[in-house]
Design a protein around this nucleic acid. Sequence first.
DNA 1: ATGAAAGCGCTAACAA
DNA 2: TTGTTAGCGCTTTCAT
Lengths: 346, 346
Amino acid sequence: MSPQPERQPRKPATILDVAAAAGVSRQTVTRAMNAMPGIKASTMERVLQAAHELGYAPSRFARGLVQGSEVSVGLAIPDLENPYFPAFASSVVEHATARGWHVVVDDFGHGGRTAMDAVERLAPQVDAIIGYVGEDADGAAHLMGRRPLVALDNAVQPACASIDFDYHHAAAEAIHYLRASGRRRIVYLDASGRGGLSNRAKAFQDVMSEVLGKIGSSVSREPTGHVVVAPRDSAAVAAHAAQELLLSRPDTDAIVVFNDLMAAGVLKGLTAAGLRVPADIAVVGMDGIPLGELLTPALTTLALDLREVGRTAVEVLAGLLAGDIELGGRAAHRIIRPTLRVRESA
Amino acid sequence: MSPQPERQPRKPATILDVAAAAGVSRQTVTRAMNAMPGIKASTMERVLQAAHELGYAPSRFARGLVQGSEVSVGLAIPDLENPYFPAFASSVVEHATARGWHVVVDDFGHGGRTAMDAVERLAPQVDAIIGYVGEDADGAAHLMGRRPLVALDNAVQPACASIDFDYHHAAAEAIHYLRASGRRRIVYLDASGRGGLSNRAKAFQDVMSEVLGKIGSSVSREPTGHVVVAPRDSAAVAAHAAQELLLSRPDTDAIVVFNDLMAAGVLKGLTAAGLRVPADIAVVGMDGIPLGELLTPALTTLALDLREVGRTAVEVLAGLLAGDIELGGRAAHRIIRPTLRVRESA
DNA sequence: ATGAAAGCGCTAACAA
DNA sequence: TTGTTAGCGCTTTCAT
């Protein structure tokens, strides 16, 4: 083997190594590295030079230990490949950055990992967590102890701050709009989660019952809100599910879909099956991701203001961190309302 | 004001506080917190209880200092809202997670921040950086000192590892395919960056010159590859640019677009202007993001395997970190080939 | 302008 | 099973 002439040592250089190399005290090295006053320019240059040669970089741990660090926030995300989540993450990163916080991202969408796995990885590394932790909210809160956790889209109020979405309102908007457009055979396409129906689907069913109840059962029997469940929330799966739905219920004239990504798939599936949207059948998505307007027809959707969601999460967290917001209070539990954005598909 | 009964103290509890509260030594607290062997169950429970009451969480800095931490990688991303980047980030996070690394994301797409800003923020916090640092590559490398930097899509070989894309090959694939389909008025729609044309546009021009040169100038004078530049890389801007292009060059029969996001906009703009794609005009995108197949018509594109890109970046970084890869060698400078994925738009 | 001492909170090694 | 000792690498006093 070759003599390995200048191979870097395994151990990274410390401040003492630099001090020795530059012939100064470690104090002077600190001053040079941090461009502090009270150091001669020539000394500083010599130290910096030595530091560079040794490949020295201050240990963030030692520095954090003594200085108390910037806040570092964990962001637990189920699936970065669903455009919804990066849009949300982008907003969180933006607002966290504005406060000087760091954001550590854990995408637990691969390799069968769960929200709990993500939180376990993140917990020792961060001062707080924002995340789509779903049913793991309580476990996650316990793991974090006193450190704040902001859970999104959880709906069962847990032992942590939360940001939820008013699905009842959303479902009502969609259903009233569709019925006003003359649609009478409305189906909800859900994505299967860990437990039965999603909260979104449940809200749809509730509102459908309310609406049909008001009309009275004497009127021509409309089917109560029918729900079909796709095995995963992907566009391809949704396209397939839409086609199956057409087979089992050919008279369906509107589909409300779990999210925009799936709605995009539904659009594809319907078109492939020879149907015209919205002439033959209406499609309403949910989320309001930018993708929606790029589709043909442009997607009508129950839009969440993703930037608002991210901003709110960061705000709540800031309040928690500062002690301005108490976990029990209403300030720690926000509800954001999706609004119907009518484009072309319904 | 109220007496603030149990308001948390400003200073977080330390291991010593817990030890005192539980009436044990700090070592025993360590053992309890880390579920180490050699501790009586009852003691452990008592310690954990005390820790919980005090809201104690071990300082990640102190722990990192003494244990030597997990690798933490900074990921510098220009714009999480362009679906390309989350797709890439997702792959990086997945592979980094598999190695037990943490990923700190900085999206520098907001508030006029540059790659350099992102690197400056990240540098004191991470052991390495992967990022789309563009022309800031050298500055970033300098800031990181001996710590590895993997720059993507940089093309001017800098003082750091790099992953580049073979745009020449990509342009050739697109142009040959389009010409074989009978297209003769091919235009490239670029996005304006900091310097003149993008590398993608330059490659397009080069290949166009080669192709037309081979044919010979005696043949009916085809225009050399024409390039138009959109002010930003967004779908809306691209839609507008496509419509303008139609005005100035109505005979254009193919547009090759800087990236898929812009191509989606072009599709919209063209359709709105009453053109049929691909019958009247062909559109070829670049990137291969999942969005492409959801569009109507589905986008023909020069596809990058985003998962491969992310995996490669992590691999190179791992090699650098382990010392298996030297900065000078070819292993530190990878080139990935986009391939033409023909769908419906061309 | 520079250096010496102290200590941040934790865990590894060793004792008891 | 538990406690004691000794740092990890850095920055903050305080001295020179």
